[in-house]
Structures are given as structure tokens and as C-alpha cells.
């Protein structure tokens, strides 16, 4: 049996390998060696430019967004003690997308590059607060999923409404980006604008590790073990809002990553919610990078939305979870 440190090393290596693969895949042949060499020497050849301005920000964003989704999924599942919890399923991602859409198409986002992620973050915060208000203290699976369905439906409808009301004729067709996500043609400006909130969000989420371990024994026991659940909830809602809000604002909704990855990794960490966090983040990064590579290899033009690939893997996976759950609940 691999030690935890060993597992993290393995996952980090996998992530690094897929990061390299993401750099190596694109729409024009690129000699990675020559490109990196040129870039280091400061020579602005076409190779160096494609590498630095197109491939690198795309790969970095894939890494950051994927880590965010894996981490947020693990934290939500640990905190809600519910294996179906995930920012997409419960409506946080959908809400964040609506916040970003509102801010973008109204022209507010043009005032400052930070406004776009801010829109996503605020909306995600509202959804988080709403979820806890609606679902109350004991969140059964049914309540959680229903709340998520309601929020996702509303978010989708509002996004559609906003896009149709937008004065630009392209807007209506852009719904596919927002609801299915994409990392195409991203630049470093997207990376800088999302990096700050994401990292702060990660810190908040990682701080809940021990509380999640305590929560395996129930809320009462966790409280008697000295954990202030109000503070933990604030860290969870705030951390998810910051990281997932910013990620969704620059990449759209990429579903199912936060659902699949914790499940696959949980047995490898002995089902301990605290240890799952970083492992899940790295696995989320790996999955997202792999999907982004696939999207560039599949010969559709323009390229497929990222969420299509994650949904094709994720929806059957979700269904298998429901199937398994059904047998348990009998």
C-alpha cells in the first residue's frame, strides 16, 4: 500500500505529465524544445510566441481550474457528508456563470478586468448562502439534489434570458461557452485575473481538512471535538465561492470533475476526508488537462466545449452512483 506522501507524489507526477501533454497538443505543429529554448532566450519566434501566449496560459488555466474543481468537490462532499455534492450538481457553478454573464454582457466587466471574476464570485456566494438557508440544518440527499436542480434550472434560464436580451447578435449563441465551458484562446490576462481569488479560496478550503475528519462522526461529535461549525461553514462557502466563482468566470461551467474525482481517489486515502483534499485537487487538475487535450485531438472545428467531454464521462458515472445509492437506500 502506497503511503500518503507517495500517493501525492504520484498524482503530482501525473498532473505534470498531463500539463506537458497539454503544452504539446495544439493546432499547428510545435517543437516544444525549440519553443522553450527560444522563449528563454527572449527570441520572439512564432514557436516561442505560440508556446508562451497560447499553449502556456491554456495549460496553466486547465491546471488551476481542474485543481479548484477537484478540491471544491472533495470539500463539499466531506462537509455535507454527501457523495453527490459538487459545485456543479448543487448549482454553485451555474450561479457563478450567471453572475459572470450578467457582468459581462451589461458592459460592467469592461470597466476593469477584475469585475468579471468578481461577478462570478458574488453569485457563487449568494448560491452558497441560499443553499444553506433552503436546505437548513439537516441536508438529506434528496433536499440537496432538489435544491441543486432548482438553482441550476433558474441559473440556466436567467443566463438564456440575459443572452437574448443582450444587444449583441453573437450573445445568444454564446450560451454554449457558459454552460459547457472551454479553455480555447485563453491568454495570461485570464490567468492573472483568476489566480488571486482561486488561491485564497484554496487556502480557505484546505483549512477545513481537520473539521471534515471530525464531521465523519456527525455534527454533534465534531462540535464536542472543538470545531466551530459556523466558522467551518463560512470557510466552505467562502472558499468554494472564491475559487469556483473565479474559475467559472474565465472558463465557463465545467461539470462533473468535482463529482468523479473525489470518488475515484477516496479509497486511495482510506476514505479520510481531510487527506482527500489535495489528492482530489491534483486528480481534478489531471482530469481537466486530459479532457482539454482530448478536445484538441477530436477533429471537430471549432473545437468541442470542454464540458462535453467531462459530461460524457461524468453523467454515466453519476448514474452509476445513483444506481449504487438506490441499492443502499432500500
Amino acid at each position: 500500500m502506497v503511503s500518503h506522501g507517495g500517493l501525492l507524489m504520484l498524482l503530482a507526477t501525473l498532473t505534470a505529465a498531463l500539463f506537458a501533454a497539454s503544452l504539446a497538443v495544439g493546432y499547428a505543429p510545435l517543437d516544444l524544445g525549440a519553443a522553450t529554448g527560444d522563449a528563454f532566450r527572449g527570441e520572439e519566434t512564432v514557436q516561442a510566441l505560440v508556446f508562451v501566449e497560447l499553449r502556456l496560459p491554456r495549460a496553466i488555466l486547465g491546471l488551476l481550474v481542474g485543481f479548484t474543481l477537484g478540491l471544491a468537490g472533495a470539500v463539499m462532499q466531506g462537509f455535507l457528508r454527501n457523495p453527490l455534492a459538487e459545485p456543479g450538481v448543487v448549482g454553485v457553478s451555474g450561479g457563478a456563470a450567471f453572475g459572470a454573464v450578467l457582468v459581462f454582457y451589461s458592459g460592467l466587466a469592461a470597466l476593469s478586468p477584475l469585475i468579471l471574476p468578481a461577478g462570478g464570485i458574488l453569485a457563487a456566494l449568494l448560491v452558497g448562502a441560499l443553499l444553506f438557508a433552503v436546505a437548513g440544518r439537516g441536508m438529506s440527499t434528496t433536499t440537496l439534489i432538489l435544491a441543486g436542480v432548482a438553482i441550476n434550472s433558474l441559473a440556466g434560464a436567467l443566463i438564456s434570458l440575459t443572452l437574448n436580451l443582450a444587444p449583441n447578435p453573437y450573445a445568444a449563441m454564446e450560451i454554449m461557452f457558459w454552460l459547457m465551458g472551454s479553455l480555447a484562446d485563453r491568454s495570461f490576462s485570464h490567468v492573472w485575473v483568476a489566480l488571486g481569488p482561486m488561491v485564497v479560496g484554496w487556502v480557505m478550503l484546505l483549512s477545513t481538512a481537520r473539521a471534515l475528519d471530525a464531521l465523519s462522526l456527525g455534527e454533534a461529535t465534531a462540535r464536542t471535538l472543538g470545531f466551530d461549525l459556523r466558522r467551518v461553514r463560512a470557510m466552505v462557502v467562502g472558499g468554494v465561492a472564491l475559487s469556483v466563482g473565479a474559475a467559472t468566470a474565465v472558463a465557463g461551467v465545467i461539470g462533473f470533475v468535482g463529482l468523479i474525482v473525489p470518488h475515484l481517489v477516496r479509497p486511495l486515502v482510506g476514505h479520510r476526508p481531510g487527506r482527500l483534499l489535495i489528492a482530489s485537487g491534483l486528480s481534478g487538475a489531471s482530469l481537466t488537462l486530459a479532457a482539454d487535450v482530448a478536445v484538441r485531438l477530436i477533429p471537430t472545428r471549432p473545437e468541442l466545449q470542454l464540458g462535453v467531454v467531462t459530461a460524457i464521462i461524468g453523467a454515466p458515472f453519476l448514474f452509476s452512483l445513483v444506481w449504487r445509492y438506490r441499492r443502499v437506500e432500500r
Binding site: V46, L49, F104, Y105, G107, P167, A171, E174
Partner: peptide, 20 residues
């Protein structure tokens, strides 16, 4: 470019101002 749209983003990509 009248109102904002994501369609225009690719036309503003920083790489276009640095074409060798």
C-alpha cells in the same frame, strides 16, 4: 464591436499585437 460579446475576445488576444 457594439455591445460586449465573447466572440470578439479572440480578436483582442495579446498575441495578435506581437505577430513576428
Amino acid at each position: 464591436e457594439s455591445a460586449p460579446a465573447r466572440a470578439y475576445e479572440v480578436l483582442h488576444h495579446p498575441i495578435l499585437s506581437r505577430l513576428p
